[in-house]
Write a protein that binds this DNA or RNA. Structure first.
Lengths: 158, 158
DNA sequence: ATGCTTTGTTTGATCAATCAAACAAAGTAG
DNA sequence: CTACTTTGTTTGATTGATCAAACAAAGCAT
């Protein structure tokens, strides 16, 4: 069932954006998708057409885009990978929110099911051990601070 | 400097493959690139032509492909991201070698410099604390084993 | 309802990636 | 050297992503 023929990065981004917009404002209009994806409106229309041909969205002329059940499955999975990666990058690698999100945004297309699952398990494991997680953050932050000051005077004896 | 105009995923893969082949057998031939990348020979030739136009490889007709200095920079960085991700996926997420490599292969194109740097620091931090790293592996492995057996009887009381 | 503004669509281009098939050059046996 | 095999190249097609410009429909003011 559900052949789930692979969807391109741009298409996956579009599905994800439709889902976010549906959740955030109840509807996904071309203008908002265009802004969210950073591409021309005509590009959005073309992408929606391809997604519609694959049965992943419906899009009536001059109407709103909405996800089909199959499209919702893909968009949700992609969104889940995005959110998980964002959290890991921010909470364990201590990247600033913008960098964490920007990287999650690209990485989300590259994790397969096994890696996604394992990463979820790792986060679950850490979340069940708040002291371990807090300890990591504290020591890693200290390590970064130390590395940074060492880096500043790299190559010279003070 | 070095404008380093962004290179597509396929191009980055190609540069990386040229580097690997150069290191492994001293030379990168079209046939081997084709096999390594899983695309037609004609695709390889087309990609090499585009890379040559950007000054990243040299490729004389019927000759070997080789990286220019600029191409070497990109290929090395990509290779470094690949290797780092592979190691993290295998050693911390405990993915099997094949899955770790397959995911690294796709993720490698999506990490920006800041995330790459931070991930390197995290691995450096962990490597400097062998007992912490070993402890993680041991407990996470145990957690995975437990989750798996719980998963098998999910939903039913034995 | 009439006219502006916003929004969406179409059309026509380009470029990258890809394949398949036809072709050409190199290399290797005999 | 000639024939066969391997390797590389060209050509021609397709598909997806993208933009810009022209156009069309909706939506709002007044």
């Amino acid at each position: 069932m559900s052949a789930t023929r692979p969807v391109s990065l741009a298409q996956e981004d579009c599905l994800e954006a439709v889902l976010r917009l549906q959740q955030a404002q109840g509807a996904a209009r071309v203008r908002d998708l265009s802004a969210a994806l950073g591409v021309h409106k005509s590009t959005v229309v073309a992408t929606l057409k391809r997604l519609a041909a694959q049965g992943l969205v419906t899009h009536a002329r001059y109407g709103l885009a909405s996800l089909t059940p199959a499209g919702t499955v893909i968009a949700s999975r992609t969104g889940a990978r995005h959110e998980l990666l964002r959290a890991v990058l921010a909470e364990f690698l201590l990247l600033d929110p913008a960098a964490a999100d920007a990287n999650a945004c690209r990485l989300e297309h590259a994790l397969d099911a096994a890696a996604h699952q394992r990463l979820r398990e790792a986060v679950g494991f850490a979340d069940a051990r708040p002291r371990l997680a807090a300890g990591w953050r504290r020591s890693f932050r200290a390590y970064l601070a130390g590395a940074k000051s060492k880096g500043r005077r790299s190559g010279g004896i003070p």
